[in-house]
Design a protein around this nucleic acid. Structure first.
Lengths: 281, 281
DNA sequence: ATCCCCATTGCATGTCCAGCAACAGTGTGG
DNA sequence: CCACACTGTTGCTGGACATGCAATGGGGAT
């Protein structure tokens, strides 16, 4: 009947405490100090050091944390990274499907694509139209289009500098697009700079005359662009609401980025507070 | 006094089981099936479904897993991604990216990996191929390969003595590699001694027949090996220039080590190196 | 309608987790 | 040199909580 000097708290749960340990190690403060030792953690979490020590041993054995043999401090282990990295592609598809469906349906009523970059080309990996339910066998998936004259492509290279762009598109010819297509790398880069500032891309008659679209980048934990969300349709139907379309796909893309752990401009803390996956941020 | 129908097993530990749950959800099989349900997991882990259900509830509340409301299946959650982002050393990653790109392109023209060690396994955290295909990269990052029959692995354990090696690989079976793979710890250690002398590792047909590679260790301020730089490609294309490849990755790895503050010399024993005033950025 | 498989919950049982105290190292200052 | 203030680990005991079984409630099939 020892004094419950430390958090009398509600029906706790040992698992929850162990997970809190991981969070503590992931905090900016802990990382800045090269990890935390047992006592520091025990103070932070308000529990006895003995149990922290024992719990950490298990976490270390399983690779969830690692220990610096000299300082005896613990850090988040690479095992966690491996877990996340292997799940990222599958996860993106799972999370994207309902969102794409929603956009293609009520929100925008135009065809929505999820794309990734393959060198200088854009590869569509998931698509949904307003009418065709779950019929994705329209030849859209797997289709390659150029990056330099499409909204998706521009979103996928939105972080690249002029030199990187030139390098990437060295084999591409700036010809064959629609009337508004960029003429060269400098032109393309100028448009990218604009897109970067507003956070999404809009194109009008660039890929093909009469075809317009908007796109926004999806980022992974490191902030790297791994995919893009894109709406595409005839100019006459889309022109008036191209800005709205851009903002809509941007919101959805941000939602997907959050699913991949990107914390972007949102708070840097990792806490239990979730980053609104529900409605547009 | 119920029948222990399910594994009477040794003194288990609820935390260990919960972590095993996460690992199971990250498995290729589980991911391919869009996550696993309670019963599937219970069968896989050999425990009662009730406890799986309860544990998953906690994991779901904390965001470590999340659930598809339709299929009721679980998959890795956003929280893991957030943790993973904080497990990586951003300094190393940022410094490595351009160097890896350079090596993969003009310098060597083969795929380059940045790897770290996670227990007896090697984890790829960054990769770049001669043709920039971000889709392919997704399959490499997060991948685990054994340390004992790969160039990266050998570079990552290059400082370990025979005893430490034996300890580390106690659970590994020296089988299943290519024709040139080491037969036992003594064999492996002998090869490591050679690599330590020349400062880099080369392997030919060890991990897989027809696959060769070279690797070199990256060290932090304290001289500890924290990562490895690795080039990998088909033996027929790499064999003739394996030494060149080794020296190339070694130079790049040393460059990265310098970024991390290492001032030592390959081969020289410990000793407080003089403080260098100018630090290259 | 019945059957089967799924996930969840109530409950009795005892495992094993919690906190305290003692112990073992290591670095610091007297 | 010892005392001291730190680290992190281990022995011990009581009881919180994880465990396995059985029962309940849903969905789909047939």
């Amino acid at each position: 009947m020892w004094h419950r000097a430390l958090v009398p708290e509600a029906p706790a749960n040992s698992l929850r405490r162990a997970l809190a340990l991981l969070d503590a190690l992931a905090s900016d403060e802990a990382r800045a100090q090269g990890g935390w030792g047992v006592n520091r953690l025990s103070a932070h979490l308000g529990r006895d050091a003995s149990q922290i020590s024992r719990t950490l041993r298990v976490l270390a054995e399983t690779g969830y944390v690692e220990r610096d043999p000299d300082s005896l401090r613990y850090r988040i282990g690479w095992h966690v990274f491996a877990l996340a990295a292997r799940a990222v592609d599958k996860r993106l598809l799972d999370a994207a499907r309902p969102i794409i469906r929603r956009l293609a349906g009520a929100d925008l009523g135009e065809r929505i694509h999820l794309t990734v970059r393959s060198g200088p080309d854009v590869l569509t990996i998931l698509t949904e139209g307003p009418t065709a339910r779950s019929v994705q066998a329209m030849g859209w998936v797997g289709r390659l289009v150029p990056a330099w004259n499409t909204a998706s492509g521009r979103a996928l290279v939105i972080d690249l500098g002029k030199d990187e762009l030139a390098d990437l598109l060295s084999t591409a010819s700036f010809s064959g697009g629609g009337p508004n297509a960029p003429n060269d790398v400098a032109d393309l880069h100028a448009r990218i700079v604009v897109a970067r500032r507003i956070g999404y891309v809009t194109v009008e008659d660039e890929f093909e005359d009469g075809l317009s679209g908007a796109a926004a980048p999806i980022r992974d934990v490191h902030g790297r662009v791994v995919a893009a969300l894109n709406v595409s349709g005839p100019t006459f139907r889309l022109r008036e609401r191209l800005t709205l379309a851009g903002k809509t796909v941007q919101a959805a893309a941000n939602e997907l980025s959050a699913h991949l752990g990107w914390e972007g401009q949102v708070g840097t803390e990792i806490g239990p507070a979730r980053v609104v996956p529900g409605k547009l941020a």
